[in-house]
Amino acid sequence: MKKFIYNAKEVCSKQVRFSMEQGGLPEVQFESGCDGNLQALSRLVEGMTVAEVVDRLQGISCRGKKSSCPDQLARALERIRNGP
């Protein structure tokens, strides 16, 4: 299992920490942000494949911002999936 930390940008959450194993996400945690919503998001995506999470969360915006905490997770996964 590989662990990653992604520094979120332009959203309430400061970081997204997650683990990847065999193309899936066994663990996802957000630092800061809307605690209840981010706990729910983490629980919902845990166990999903990286492709599923990216497809569902990519492009979500929040309060007029260009991104959101879910979108930041999708961006982090895309960066890892596609390389730097």
Rank of each mutant, 00 (worst) to 15 (best):
M1Y: 06
M1E: 09
K2F: 02
K3R: 15
F4V: 15
F4N: 09
I5T: 15
Y6T: 04
Y6F: 14
N7K: 13
N7D: 14
A8R: 15
A8G: 10
E10P: 04
E10G: 06
E10N: 15
E10R: 10
V11G: 12
V11P: 14
K14R: 11
K14W: 00
K14M: 02
K14Q: 07
Q15K: 14
R17I: 08
S19H: 10
S19I: 08
S19N: 12
M20Q: 15
E21D: 12
E21Y: 10
E21Q: 12
E21W: 08
G23F: 01
G23M: 03
G24H: 03
G24P: 00
L25D: 01
P26E: 12
P26R: 09
P26S: 11
E27I: 02
E27F: 05
V28D: 15
Q29L: 12
Q29R: 15
Q29F: 15
F30Y: 14
F30K: 09
E31G: 05
S32W: 10
G33C: 13
G36N: 06
N37C: 04
Q39W: 02
Q39N: 11
A40D: 02
L41N: 01
L41H: 00
L41M: 06
S42Y: 00
L44K: 01
V45C: 01
V45P: 03
G47F: 00
G47Y: 01
M48C: 12
M48W: 03
M48H: 06
T49S: 10
A51Q: 13
A51L: 07
A51C: 04
V53E: 02
V54R: 11
V54Y: 06
D55N: 13
R56A: 13
R56V: 01
R56S: 08
L57W: 01
L57Q: 03
G59V: 11
G59Q: 08
G59T: 06
I60M: 11
I60C: 08
C62I: 07
C62S: 11
G64V: 08
G64H: 05
K65Q: 10
K66H: 04
K66I: 11
S67M: 05
S67G: 04
C69S: 09
C69D: 15
P70V: 04
D71Q: 03
D71K: 01
D71F: 00
A74L: 04
A74N: 07
A74R: 02
R75Q: 13
R75H: 09
A76G: 15
A76P: 13
L77A: 05
R79D: 14
R79P: 11
R79C: 14
I80F: 07
N82I: 01
N82E: 11
